[in-house]
Amino acid sequence: MFSYCSDPDTLETFRWFSCYLTTGVHMSFYVAFLKVLLLLAITAPVALAFGFAGAMAARSHFLPLRWLGKVYIAVVRGVPDIAFFLFFVIALDQAVEYLRHKMLCSGWDQPIRQGSDFVVCQAAKMPLSTAPQFIHETYGFFLAVITFAIVFGAFAANVLFGGMRAVPHAQLETAEAYGMSNRQTFWRILVPQMWVYALPGLSNLWMVLIKATPLLFLLGIEDIVYWARELGGTKTSKFTSYPHGDWRMWYFLVLLIFYLAFTRVSEVVLERVMVRLTHGQATSGGETQRKAVVQ
């Protein structure tokens, strides 16, 4: 990166590190941090949407739909999330290939599962084996987002379901007395009010989501954990001009600090949002704020 980096062996400590930390592979390491942020930015709204749909299903008047919602919430919460990550990544991939196989491979007469193999025709492979590396990576990332959304959608559904139930019943009865239909009551009265009840749970969920991002590593994505292991391992002078011992411990210390800073910042921001949202609400938090202003 810097002009003096051409012969690292001769450099003193500070310069050596400034060269070492700006090598090409380290740049990939820094990009991986962005990947984590990108994953969070995409997953959070998608998971919230899943959660909203799940909560709506769980309080539906249509019995099978209600069961579906409740089973979704209970099963995902009862099983370790990491098991779901490992499961969905293969299951989703196979589901996509199976569907494409049904559509694209008309002349195929063999079974798809042959012993320990999952065989589809060339045209049904996803992504196609001819596709560039970029497509493969994006597809893997996309599967990860869906998996995260399914798992955290169940947690969000649980929180939103609780939030919907916490809205004072009198509010809904008033809406009914004004002649609103069920749908109108739901969208105009229930949904705007439920957020303040759901926010503590949702902010907790956001923290859990942040802390689940290193699991990307298990989904085969080159994320920060992958690079920390890769870069920290012992390097001899045979393969690199920056030989060093086993530094994995330090790399993971950096990740630890990154996550601590990230969760701390989130905590502060979410506290502010909570203050903003409780403003004027008929809750004990809102009441405290009102009194503080009056005095």
């Binding site: 802390k211 699991l215 590593f217 954990v225 920290g232 086993d246 411990m249 993971f252 990740l255």
Partner: peptide, 12 residues
Amino acid sequence: SPLFIQFFFAYF
């Protein structure tokens, strides 16, 4: 911090 990272850090 994530437990996953704590495990890695502790192991190394």
